[in-house]
């Protein structure tokens, strides 16, 4: 096997090469420094690619993204419990105001007093509890729930600080 034949085999994952390809590649790599080095380069490019794209994504301000998605889903798509008991009605009320709280981060001049509340639901039995409360005077607060735990951010105030 020459280098030109080995090249497309570089960067394969376990199980992707058939036994013949596997054997030929191993044999070639054991004697060819150049192809071993090329393989390392290929892996390096792969890592940088993922890093770079995730970095771009981390830089971007995602305010309004989820709102934009949900705004395009018709209300009729949401089946399930209509607000009934007091807990449900409060949740519905606060859900609308969370949208307001996020919107006020975009229009700081309009936010006189921003109050953001998030109600989480415990997964165990028993009545649901308040998991997170955030009060923010004059700043819009946003809570993101991740699998590692919550992330609480605050936005700009109306005086631009």
């Amino acid at each position: 096997m020459k280098c030109a034949g080995a090249a497309p085999l570089l960067g394969s994952r376990p199980g992707e090469l058939d036994p013949v390809e596997d054997a030929l590649l191993s044999a070639h790599l054991s004697t060819c420094d150049g192809c071993r080095a090329r393989q390392a380069d290929q892996e390096a490019v792969a890592r940088v690619l993922e890093d770079g794209l995730l970095l771009e994504a981390a830089r971007r301000d995602f305010t309004g993204f989820a709102d934009g998605v949900l705004a395009r889903i018709p209300a009729s798509a949401w089946r399930g419990a209509a607000p009934t008991g007091p807990m449900e009605r409060l949740r519905e009320f606060l859900r609308r105001h969370r949208i307001l709280a996020v919107a006020s981060a975009l229009a700081p001049a309009l936010a006189a007093l921003a109050l953001y509340l998030y109600i989480g639901q415990t997964t165990g039995p028993g009545p649901s509890e308040l998991a997170i409360e955030v009060t923010s005077e004059d700043l819009a607060a946003v809570v993101l729930e991740t699998s590692d735990g919550p992330v609480i951010l605050v936005g700009e105030g109306s005086d631009g600080t």
Binding site: L54, E56, R60, L70, A77, R79
Partner: peptide, 23 residues
């Protein structure tokens, strides 16, 4: 089951990786 908040949470959790793929 029709819970918009659950879907919103899914969006927020995955939005950045999805954006990375799209970009």
């Amino acid at each position: 089951g029709g819970d918009p908040e659950a879907f919103r949470e899914l969006v927020v959790r995955h939005q950045r990786r999805v954006y990375a793929v799209a970009l």
